[in-house]
Design a protein around this nucleic acid. Structure first.
Lengths: 342, 342
DNA sequence: ATGAAAGCGCTAACAT
DNA sequence: ATGTTAGCGCTTTCAT
């Protein structure tokens, strides 16, 4: 059968290595060898195969390849909420590194819900992802251990579940808040409040520890003034109002993340208070707009994009080396950006 | 061989339908029938299979299934930039609907780069996604047509490439800007500037059209005052300064999206102007913080989350019905939220 | 209703 | 270096 006819005949079906083999006068295995490039192939055969591939516009079926090789060139990314700019930047970092290396990213928002996280972990495993980057809720320790045991490497980011053989990328939350709190103290504030979540998430526990550390470091140690709001932020207004209307209200507030910050800003606006005259403010997480508001907002900036990149690099490194890597943790340093709010 | 031994023997390898068949005293095809649930199976066999599945904690290999069925239960999502809150909300909508239906989402940031979009489209096709939701750059018309022809449904969101057999989800950009501009006119402004991109992206062309429409609708038609900034926003400061320092500067500005808005805010802040006293402002896209700043920002809000949901619903609808659906376009209405800035 | 057998498209022994 | 063959784990005729 002349080449033209072969091509015409094939137009409907999906093309396979057999078609390329036939057109190039070789065998499926030779075509496969050219495709994977790990085994030597004679120059003339190689050229014939490449020519046939180009002529047919053949593209290998990646699913068939995955069934054979057990690798999918896909990774999973589990984060709390992509709408949070911190996780958004993290995700960009992961995606940029992954896509450069030819990996696709399946992204999943857990909403801080261990149930949802668990079913996503299961789904990703069933889909055969080569690895997973996740900001663990903490509620799926066993499932995470399962994944690792069954050969799917995990990289933890932002949070850490202790005792797993998984690399981690974290931030020095303690140091970041300590520095920021000391900055407020240096501005002359002696009654400094902390607004954080009522739930005991690891990053929040560390931020609280940093706050405490700073207070205790003062010559005359300052007393704690902590406001714990619900994760859904529904009680922020009420609690902030109570705190600021008390007999000895704080003169400065440290807000433990960007979500909390927005809800506190609202409460402050509703109370008609002026920042920083009535109350000074510093925030954990820097948003783009914080430099543009009046007053601009003093913030602890996390290198979220680079943290995402590092997590993806950890993962790819594990995927390409079969040596059972030692567990590493990369700790990034936040940066205090002093602006007008406090 | 007693059951215990079978289980013990299997602990290492991945479990298959054969293992379930053996333990349940049936055949692989019966196990498959139970798994897919589309073919009747006798009650006793069904129970035996289910029992074996539970006992072994068997989970089917989805990649093998995909190779056979040509369906992956994965969809692709191509957007400009997940860090833009508009696309972030869109992505959440897509993901929420997709995950409820058991689909995973592969997400890809195009950075408005047709080359990057093209290679992602190719990758997604090679990975065998069942469908794609995308905000097209416009530079890959042929690749999009290819996808559709080869049986991968596409849903366009935010933008639209004309003449493709693909459902679309868009926003009434013209109406949104017309309403907002008329609002500024009603506030007494007769010199109203528009800040938009120099590049001719479809949404921006429509927003400009809405602006023009409003100006022309005035009794004495107002003259246009358009500032076209680079997509990378590097010249915003220079151009805004020139515009506002001209002999007859605008007294109000409409900013065509949230990225442009932030860069213009910076320019205004650097010029030391006060909003809305020196210059009134309205923005396309509503950010969470716009209600909390001083002054709060008048904005045209897009229902981004619901647009994402609708796009995913369009796609899933096409995936579940084999009827060659007629092409539909869902047009959402934006909402003008009047605040203090203008 | 059920089991045997074929085959999805690829890669990797194996043999030459 | 290359072709032949088997097999990844599943679904789906096909026969009964």
């Amino acid at each position: 059968m002349p080449q033209e006819d072969i091509k015409a005949t094939l137009s409907a079906r999906q093309l396979t290595v057999k078609d390329v083999a036939r057109l190039s006068g070789t065998s499926p295995s030779t075509v496969s060898r050219v495709l994977t490039g790990r085994v030597p192939v004679a120059k003339d055969k190689y050229d014939a195969v490449m020519k046939a591939i180009a002529e047919l516009n053949y593209r290998p079926n990646l699913i068939a390849r995955s069934l054979k090789t057990k690798a999918t060139f896909s990774i999973g990314l589990l984060i709390n909420d992509i709408l949070n700019p911190f996780y958004g930047a993290l995700a960009r970092g992961v995606e940029d590194v992954a896509s450069e290396a030819g990996y696709a990213v399946m992204f999943c928002n857990t909403n801080e819900d261990p149930g949802r996280e668990g079913s996503y972990l299961r789904m990703l495993q069933d889909k055969g992802v080569d690895g997973i980057v996740l900001a663990p809720t903490g509620g799926n320790r066993d499932a995470m251990q399962d994944l690792i045991s069954s050969g799917t490497p995990l990289v933890q980011i932002d949070r850490q579940v202790a005792g797993l053989a998984a690399n981690s990328v974290t931030l020095d939350n303690i140091g970041g808040v300590e520095t920021a709190t000391k900055h407020l103290m240096a501005q002359g504030h002696s009654r400094i409040g902390l607004v954080t979540y009522a739930i005991g998430q690891m990053t929040m526990i560390d931020r609280e520890a940093g706050y405490r550390k700073a207070l205790r470091s003062a010559d005359s140690s300052l007393s704690e003034l902590i406001c714990r709001v619900k994760f859904d932020l529904s009680d922020t207004g009420r609690l902030i109002t109570r705190m600021l209307k008390s007999d000895t209200p704080p003169t400065a507030l440290f807000l433990a993340n960007n979500r909390i910050a927005l809800s506190v800003f609202q409460a402050i606006k509703e109370l008609g208070l002026t920042v920083p005259k009535d109350i000074a403010i510093a925030v954990f997480d820097d948003l783009e707009i914080f430099s543009l508001t009046t007053p601009s907002i003093t913030a602890v900036a996390q290198p979220a994009y680079n943290m995402g990149r590092k997590a993806a690099e950890f993962l790819l490194q594990q995927l390409s080396s079969d040596a059972p890597a030692i567990t590493q943790t990369a700790v990034f340093q936040p940066e205090l950006i002093v602006r007008e709010s406090g």
